[in-house]
Design a protein around this nucleic acid. Structure first.
Lengths: 225, 225
DNA sequence: TGACTTGACGTCCACCTGACACTAACCCTA
DNA sequence: TAGGGTTAGTGTCAGGTGGACGTCAAGTCA
């Protein structure tokens, strides 16, 4: 085979991935953020992410960075590439192109800890995050939009909850993601009509009337981003 | 300011853009393809595209490549980045990441000519293209899906037509993009209800009953991808 | 036991969508 | 000039969807 070389005008750039990972926490939609330990933007909050290594696929890099920076282990199906940020000047270190990924964290993956070059990792408000490094606010905003779009078709919300859950809890997830209130009755009607929930038979007590517990119906395909 | 350097593990990759450009031609949806003049995949058909140059934004690179390879001059608003293809091995020359763009060619931009390193440029069937180089078939397929999605909300179809057009012509655009037949009466109902068309008063003769000519209504924002 | 809290439920209306068949206007040819 | 060919143009009905809305039910707790 003929020896092939890159043409000289091919720009060499740094290739990175960033991950906007979401979960429910305290009845609120939260994003997984890390506090940077290095320049540039040391001590600022940022999305987890980093450089793709040679021989590594984009989604592999995203999973690895998530793992090392926040100790979150994620399955590939919870990850979706959604936009690539390549603007000149977005990173002071040079031309760095970042392929941004959206991640939905299944309930239980919530324990995080800093690692790698970070000072720590935390779940912070997705709709009102602190000041973010680089162009990460733009990335987060776009990720939220995508998440809201996805919510409509895929039965994505179930991933935010444990195996069994009540309808009001599920509604809470929708409201947290969409950032607006929904009507109780219409919500039930819609969700139950989809036949993706089966009552577990048990009920959950608390304040007020106990709620029926549901689980994902047997034949329902798990949501893939 | 502290001197910043890229960390050593940062993968340097070739950064490219590819463009899936669509137009109507002969009552059919067509994609703009070029015949490669160089290895690899010499003489194969491919999407127009190429390497991003230093100091060049992604969308600028896309517009430039389109211009040099196909002589098509396009406004930025007709261009939308939609997915990034970065799989290892997608290009035999090494790690090359391509940011794929979707382009809608306004009517009249149809004259093309080969240029750059290509043997020629042509409008070929979008739904049944020839064998394509690299992973360009996957890119094209994804672009088509995005185009179909976009068609629903944005009033994207108008860009495929000249200033004045008939309703049957517009319906033809929808059908070509969606790749299925639509009902005349329902189509008219839907489109006219949107108040984005105004009758020009004139009519177009041909075979059969002359059709009313319409134009884009005054206050309608032009579709932006 | 009564007040409070939260869950559960049904109806109505507006709107949208899709299915469906006939008439109208023009051209061309015999 | 009459008739056939061809395409444009129109309305109705049924079913489904989505949103607005109030009331009763089942617990907890003081």
């Amino acid at each position: 085979m003929t020896r092939l070389v890159l043409p000289p005008q091919a720009t060499q750039v740094g290739l990175a991935v960033d991950i906007a990972a979401f979960a429910m926490h305290g009845g609120e939609l939260r994003a997984l953020l890390v506090q940077r330990g290095e320049l540039p933007h040391a001590r600022d909050w940022a999305l987890p992410g980093g450089f793709v290594q040679p021989g590594e696929e984009l989604h592999e890099a995203a999973l690895r960075e998530l793992q090392t920076e926040t100790a979150v282990q994620l399955e590939p199906r919870h990850l979706e590439q959604f936009y690539t940020f390549g603007e000149i000047g977005r990173d002071p270190r040079g031309r760095i192109v970042s392929v941004a990924h959206l991640a939905v964290l299944p309930h239980g993956t919530v324990r995080v800890s800093g690692g790698g070059h970070t000072l720590g990792a935390e779940w912070l408000s997705a709709h009102h995050p602190p000041r973010l490094a680089f162009d990460h606010q733009a990335i987060l905003t776009r990720a939220l939009l995508r998440l809201q779009l996805r919510l409509e078709y895929a039965n994505l919300a179930l991933d935010f909850l444990p195996d069994t859950f009540t309808l009001p809890e599920l509604q809470g997830v929708y409201e947290a993601i969409l950032n607006r209130q929904l009507d109780k009755r219409n919500f039930r009607k819609r969700l139950l009509a989809q036949n993706i929930l089966t009552p577990s038979g048990e009920r959950r007590s608390g304040v007020g009337r106990p709620a029926q517990l549901y689980r994902r119906a047997k034949n329902v395909r798990v949501a893939a981003l």
